[in-house]
Amino acid sequence: MKTLSRYFVIALIALLATSVARAVQPDEMLKDPQLEARARAISAELRCLVCQNQSIDDSNADLAHDLRVLVRDRIMAGDDDAAVMDYLVQRYGEYVLLRPRFSLGNALLWAAGPVALFGGLIVIWFTTRETRMRKERPLTETEEARVEAIIARSLRDH
């Protein structure tokens, strides 16, 4: 069954937890709406470690619940956003971050887009160089005559 339904995102997500919508629970939420908003924003950046590519904010898994509570505990303890993130990275590794950090190891990932764009521009520059050089010259007299003849013929035919 595990391999069979690994087909749709839906099935994927459902396999990893019961699919009663549980994501963020009312009893987890902080009283202060501003602190809660911060907790939600941080949660959206953190991965539920046992799920397939889901943030802890969206996930139904028990671990996600624990992490949500942990994030809120850290906020209540007075940590700022960066400190909460650092705390989780220390405990769970960079794997927990949904947006990888800028680092040497991730250079390839972050640079992929700009490099592709730059590479594309270079390719376009070189492939069109030939056509840019190949300026259109005016027609020679014989060519003009041929065009005239063709036009005249097609006019006559119609």
């Binding site: 959206a44 950046e45 991965r47 590519n53 943030s55 590794g93 960079e94 794997y95 927990v96 971050l97 949904l98 947006r99 990888p100 190891g105 991730n106 990932l109």
Partner: peptide, 12 residues
């Protein structure tokens, strides 16, 4: 390559 895991998710 490295043996360790990394996540590329929606925020990226």
């Amino acid at each position: 390559v490295t043996g360790s895991k990394i996540t590329v998710g929606p925020p990226f």
